[in-house]
Design a protein around this nucleic acid. Structure first.
Length: 593
RNA sequence: GUGCCCGUAGCUCAGCUGGAUAGAGCAUCUGCCUUCUAAGCAGACGGUCGGACGUUCGAAUCGUCUCGGGCACGCCA
């Protein structure tokens, strides 16, 4: 367990020991780095939060906390400040010991910072219709989904990555018709791709493959049902191959591609889910009012099977079956998510475009009715990606088929740059992706900044071994601790036996250590909020501290091998943390650049 | 008309379960390479946190209203 986590636990325990303090209120208590570093290493608002419950003025309460904190081994000094903050300065040795406890695998260091450890979690992402290749917007989905899945894994969840293949909807019919048109064109027929169809060139290639496989088998078939039956499997597979190829370039892999068609063919799960909802009084046959605010000339009142979303506080009830008896998208979603539930998943993350945000509120309601739990479904809605080329926005229109393909961008900038950039801002912020700037290796490109820090640290280890014959792990043998008191932190060893790291690594090195120390907090928050961009922001902070240190201190010094060894130890920890952060983002951590 | 999201430095954005003097990068200007990677570092400049009211000891953060922008609004997915 890390120092930060330990201190926070001790803080909470101390607070819980006070009269009339309950767990609930502790949610508002934070232990964090003060904005102004002169205030100390950590600060807590506990006194102010608890003042009402305990019935003492905040500053008095803070005074009591000060004496509690100062009794802790790791604390150098604590003091009351402002309206009732308690500022805490840590012993340098505690900070260094904490950071040095980080091992090659960072995960043990994050122990205690987990959120929902042991939860069986499904992360559903990408899930675009199998009707064509992936475009950049979906690339953001893939980047988020993958990072979130990784994060949750590191937090101890049992994570299942799933892609929902929507091969049952009406779009497949459109796809098949478009494909058939391309197919007929290959035989010299004068036929256009349907106006509402898919005009992209990729269907020409797929049509060629079809011709190669089946010859003229479909040349004189015009019955759309026969075509649908005969070609849907081939068309969907061909499109999924395109999609999988693009995902492979990005390094994204799924545990399962879940076929909606199979779900309907092999089970009656949707009907069962609807039956349960009906039992609970949330399904009825009714007529929807005409849509508001939009001219609807062909509105015909029709009786449909509706989910009573209005009973859950929403504006409109939602149809689960179409007039023709087929399930609606919403209806399928209920079935699919109920399936997830029956498969044992108790946390369902779905990464979904903001343009579909309207759909997940009713689904969340339906699921909470279905399962009796209301925090299972956790959609992550992300905003659109706007692509800039030569400073000009690239117009994207699905109709014209000229949306920017993911593969194209990946070819230009590489997956590392793309992934990192997709994650830099929070999901709800629309992202502008400037291809020119992404290619440049400048400060506008934070990927290189972070990777460069990692590469610099890796180089140090390499050069130390090559030029000075100094290797990692020798520091402790240099006489620092021989009496077994190297037990991380709080071992209470007499100070004299320990070598002081500070003169060896410098103030800038101490700053590095203090930055690394906060990883568990940042990690926990990122997981709890499902916001990987926090890790990116933090990675930039770590990199900045590393670069400052590097510029400030002569790292390798043949006349100061002891110091060199000490710096190497710290450098390795910074590198582990950076590598871990990059790993979560799906970005390479290069040894040299 | 309704719902969701956004509005913070010239630009792109962090910060939002309320907390101290609101941060970073870019841009502009000034410095730093005889030594480990200058894809770097140090510094300067830059703000009525869209606006109003409210809750509070305390609001960029919470609530209501408002202005501006994006997205979505029967049996499309």
């Amino acid at each position: 367990m890390s120092l930060y986590t330990e201190l926070r636990e001790k803080l909470f325990q101390s607070l819980l020991g006070m009269e009339s303090v309950e767990t609930q209120i502790l949610q508002n208590v934070v232990l964090e780095q003060p904005k102004d570093k002169t205030h100390g290493d950590l600060a807590t608002n506990a006194a102010m939060v608890l003042t009402k419950v305990v019935g003492k003025p905040p500053r008095i309460l803070a005074e009591e906390l000060v004496s509690i904190f100062e009794a802790w081994d790791a604390v150098e000094k604590a003091s009351v400040a402002g309206p009732g903050f308690v500022n805490i300065s840590l012993k340098n040795k505690s900070v260094f010991d904490d950071v040095l406890s980080v091992q090659d695998s960072v995960e043990p260091y994050l122990e205690g910072a987990e959120v929902g450890k042991g939860t069986k979690t499904i992360v559903e992402y990408v899930s675009i219709n199998p009707t064509g290749p992936i475009h950049v917007g979906h690339g953001r989905n893939a980047a988020f989904g993958d990072a979130i899945a990784k994060m949750l894994e590191k937090a101890g969840h049992f994570v299942h990555r799933e892609y929902l293949v929507n091969d049952a909807g009406g779009q497949i019919r459109v796809l098949v018709n478009s494909l058939h048109a391309r197919y007929l064109q290959l035989f010299g027929k004068d036929i256009e791709v349907p106006a509402d169809g898919y005009p992209g060139d990729y269907l020409i290639d797929i049509a060629k493959n079809l011709k190669e496989k089946d010859g003229d088998k479909w040349l004189n078939v015009s019955d759309s049902e026969v075509l649908l039956d005969g070609l849907r499997g081939f068309a969907v597979e061909a499109c999924m191959d395109l999609i999988r190829a693009d995902l492979a370039v990005m390094g994204v892999k799924f545990d399962r591609f879940f076929s909606e068609l199979d779900m309907h063919r092999e089970s009656d799960i949707m009907a069962r889910a609807v039956a349960i909802l009906r039992e609970k009084g949330y399904i009825y046959e009714g007529v929807l009012p005409p849509p508001k605010g939009k001219e609807m000339t062909d509105y015909v009142p029709v009786k449909l099977t509706l989910f009573k979303a209005t009973a859950c506080g929403l504006g409109e009830d939602q149809p689960v079956y179409k007039r023709n008896g087929e399930p609606t998208y919403f209806g399928q979603d209920i079935g699919y998510h109920y399936d997830k539930y029956l498969r044992g998943f108790r946390k369902m993350v779905t990464v979904i475009g903001a343009d579909q945000a309207g759909s997940f509120t009713p689904l969340a309601k339906a699921l909470s009715v279905l399962t009796g739990k209301d925090d299972i479904y956790q959609p992550v809605a992300y905003e659109m990606v706007k692509v800039l080329r030569n400073g000009e926005p690239v117009r994207m229109s699905k109709r014209a088929g000229n949306f920017v393909l993911l593969k194209q961008v990946l070819d230009e900038v590489g997956k590392d740059v793309f992934r990192f950039m997709m994650l830099t801002v929070k999901p709800t912020t629309p992202l502008t992706f400037d291809v020119a700037k992404a290619i440049e290796k400048t400060m506008e490109n934070p990927v290189f900044y972070v990777q460069y820090a990692h590469a610099r640290l890796a180089s140090l280890e390499r050069l130390a071994a090559e030029d000075l014959g100094v290797r990692r792990g020798e520091f402790n043998e240099g006489g620092e601790v021989r009496d077994g008191a190297s037990e991380v932190r709080g071992g209470g060893a007499a100070g004299g036996a320990d070598l002081d790291m500070l003169p060896l690594v410098g103030e800038a090195g101490l700053d590095v250590a203090k930055t690394l120390m906060m990883y568990p907090q940042v990690f926990e928050q990122s997981v709890r909020l499902l916001e990987p961009h926090r890790l990116v922001t933090y990675a930039r902070e770590v990199a900045a501290a590393v670069h400052r240190w590097y510029a400030d201190v002569r790292m390798l010094d043949k006349d100061d091998l002891e110091g060199t060894r000490a710096r190497l130890e710290l450098a390795a920890r910074a590198r582990y943390v950076l590598a871990d952060l990059l790993d979560t983002c799906g970005v390479a951590a290069p040894e040299r650049m």
